[in-house]
Simulated assay, not measured.
Amino acid sequence: MLLLSACSRTEQVETLTGFAQGTTWHVTVWQPGGVDLNTLQKHIDAEFSRLDTVLSNYRADSDIERFNRSETTALVEVGEEIVTLVRTARTISEASQGCYDLTIKPLFDLWGFTGDTLTPPSPDVLAQVRQHIGFSKLSSPSGNLLQKSDPKLRVDLSSIAQGYSVSRIAAVVEAAGIQNYLVEIGGELQTRGHKPDGSPWRIGVERPLPEGRSVEKALTIGRDTPTAVMTSGTYRHYFDEQGQRYSHILDARTGRPVAHNTVSVTVVHDNPTEADAWSTALLCLGSRNGVKVAKQQGIAALFIDTEGGQLQEVPTTAWRALKEQHIEVN
């Protein structure tokens, strides 16, 4: 009886929480025999710290910001992680017809989305800055080098780095021998395995409304293989200026915030890095064009539009077929 009691105490869900990358994170785990939470916490904190020094656009000493400051067309060593992210993003950018583009950082700064005040630029200034935007001006000739053809080019990894961070924290968890977990950073997440009683992880997709928080959809992840759920939306980060609402999602082709009525896109994928980038790319395109691209790429995505003050769901074919992958949508 004592033995059975001890086992039941160790086979329970444990959750670690913290603050990183400008948001909160939660790691929920369980494993037969229990989990060394103190050691796991140390390893997670160390990995977040390492990722920060590589990918953060808010740290002047990070590898990506060192590259951004290097106003040169010479080769710059940035490491394999950044090059891999750039290559992944380039493929998705091409599929989005250039709407999604990591080189929009000068535009993001120009509009004021990095601060507290929106500053809509004049057409002349916008045209001038757009001359220094575009994946065509960025190359990755080797596994750890990047090169600019325009010295003023700057890269913003925020649309893909969080998904990659989810994958890295999940790798830390798995390195500890844990096969059952839910890793979440700022609402972006990956699951693996199931709960101690055999029941699946359940995920809530937030209703895309600025006021309050409620669930639009619930996903029941009935498969044990790694599954990423990523959502991008315009409903939390925006500015209202002179009666007009400006989304923080910028279309690299125009240099302006998107103007369509798609307010969120949720993507279910087996790769959190790609899922993160795809959710942003499809949100940039909007449902009218994004559904076509998602269908071509086989992406399971749920677009949510606003029509006459009401929310309208627009699922892709792959999203409707999630049940075949043992993922229930309610």
Rank of each mutant, 00 (worst) to 15 (best):
L4A: 07
R9M: 03
E11H: 12
Q12S: 14
T17K: 14
T17Y: 11
F19H: 15
T23C: 09
W25F: 15
V27L: 11
V29A: 09
V29P: 11
W30V: 00
D36E: 13
L40G: 05
A46D: 13
A46W: 11
E47Q: 15
E47W: 06
T53E: 14
N57L: 03
Y58S: 05
Y58E: 10
Y58I: 01
I64G: 07
I64T: 05
R66I: 04
R69P: 07
E71V: 04
T72Q: 14
T72W: 13
T73A: 07
A74T: 03
V76A: 08
V76W: 08
G79H: 09
V83W: 09
T84C: 06
A89G: 03
I92L: 02
A95N: 10
T103N: 05
F108L: 02
T114L: 08
D116G: 05
L118G: 01
T119I: 02
D124N: 10
V125S: 11
A127P: 02
R130G: 08
R130K: 15
R130I: 00
H132R: 14
S136E: 15
S139A: 12
P141K: 07
N144F: 02
N144D: 13
S149N: 09
D150V: 03
P151M: 07
K152T: 06
L153M: 08
D156E: 08
D156G: 05
D156A: 05
Q162N: 13
Q162H: 11
G163I: 00
Y164K: 05
R168P: 03
I169R: 12
A171G: 14
V172G: 08
V173K: 13
E174T: 13
A175W: 08
R192P: 06
G193S: 12
D197H: 11
P200F: 04
P200L: 01
W201R: 08
R207G: 01
R207E: 13
L209W: 09
E216M: 05
K217R: 15
I221N: 12
G222S: 08
R223I: 04
D224P: 05
P226C: 12
A228Y: 11
V229N: 12
V229M: 04
M230Y: 04
T231V: 01
T231C: 05
Y238D: 03
Q242H: 14
Q242G: 02
G243N: 12
G243V: 03
Q244E: 15
Y246D: 06
Y246M: 05
S247A: 12
I249K: 03
L250P: 08
P257H: 06
T266N: 03
N271Q: 11
E274M: 06
L282C: 07
L285T: 00
G286L: 00
R288E: 13
R288H: 12
G290E: 08
V293I: 12
G298S: 06
F303P: 00
F303K: 03
F303H: 04
D305R: 01
G308W: 04
T317E: 14
T317M: 02
A318D: 14
R320E: 09
R320Q: 15
A321L: 11
L322P: 09
E328D: 15
